[in-house]
C-alpha cells in the first residue's frame, strides 16, 4: 500500500491507481522528479490497459519529461505497438524528439521492433530525422544488422516512390 502512483502505473495496478487518482484530480498529470508522468511510466512498461484508463482520466499524452522524453518514444522503445497506436490516436507528435535526438521510429528500430516500425511508418513517421550521431532510421537498421526492419523501411520507401 505504499507504492507510488508511478509504481502502480508501471505495474498495471489499475484498481489501486484509480483509488489514488480519485483523491486529487491533479495527480494524473503530476510529474515525478525527472518529469515522468504516470502515463509515461505505464507506456514505458507496456501496461496498455493502464494507458487506456489514464487517457480516459485526462492524462496528457503530449507531456514531455525533463529531457524531452515522451510517452510515444518510451512505448516505441519497448515495441509496445498497441500503446503507440493509442497515443497516435490522441494526435501526439509522431516525430517527437528528445535531447538524444531520438524519435519514436529511431527507438523502435534500435529495439528491432518490426511491427512498431511498420506502424510508425504507416502513420507518417519521418525517415529523414537523424539521431545526434547522424544516424537515420535506415542507417541504424543497417548498422545494427536488423535485416527485417531494414526490409520494412526499404519497402516503405519503394511504396513512396511508386505513389
Amino acid at each position: 500500500d505504499t507504492l507510488s502512483i508511478y509504481q502502480l502505473a508501471a505495474q498495471g495496478e489499475l484498481t489501486l491507481l484509480k483509488e489514488n487518482l480519485q483523491k486529487d484530480e491533479n495527480l494524473v498529470n503530476k510529474p515525478d522528479k525527472r518529469g515522468f508522468t504516470p502515463l509515461m511510466w505505464a507506456s514505458a512498461f507496456g501496461e496498455i490497459e493502464t494507458v487506456r484508463c489514464l487517457l480516459e482520466l485526462g492524462a496528457d499524452p503530449h507531456a514531455l519529461a525533463d529531457q524531452r522524453e515522451s510517452a510515444v518514444s518510451l512505448a516505441s522503445t519497448g515495441g509496445y505497438t498497441g500503446i503507440v497506436v493509442l497515443l497516435l490516436e490522441k494526435n501526439v507528435n509522431i516525430n517527437s524528439y528528445d535531447w538524444n535526438g531520438g524519435t519514436p521510429i529511431l527507438y523502435a528500430v534500435r529495439g528491432n521492433h518490426v511491427k512498431c516500425v511498420e506502424t510508425l511508418l504507416a502513420r507518417g513517421a519521418d525517415l529523414t530525422m537523424e539521431a545526434d550521431s547522424g544516424y537515420t532510421p535506415m542507417d541504424l537498421a543497417v548498422a545494427l544488422g536488423h535485416k527485417k526492419v531494414q526490409q520494412v523501411i526499404e519497402n516503405h520507401i519503394l511504396k513512396l516512390f511508386r505513389n
Binding site: 507504492l3 509504481q7 508501471a10 505495474q11 515525478d32 525527472r34 515522468f36 509515461m40 511510466w41 507506456s43 514505458a44 512498461f45 529531457q67 522524453e69 518514444s73 518510451l74 522503445t77 528528445d98 538524444n100 535526438g101 531520438g102 529511431l106 527507438y107 534500435r110 539521431a131 545526434d132 550521431s133 547522424g134 544516424y135 542507417d139 541504424l140 548498422a143 545494427l144
Partner: peptide
C-alpha cells in the same frame, strides 16, 4: 511481501557502441 520496484523509465542512447557517421 514488498512488490519489486520498477526503475525510472529511460530512453536508451540510440547509437551506443556505433561509430559516428
Amino acid at each position: 511481501t514488498q512488490l519489486p520496484l520498477y526503475t525510472s523509465p529511460s530512453l536508451p542512447n540510440i547509437t551506443l557502441g556505433l561509430p559516428a557517421t
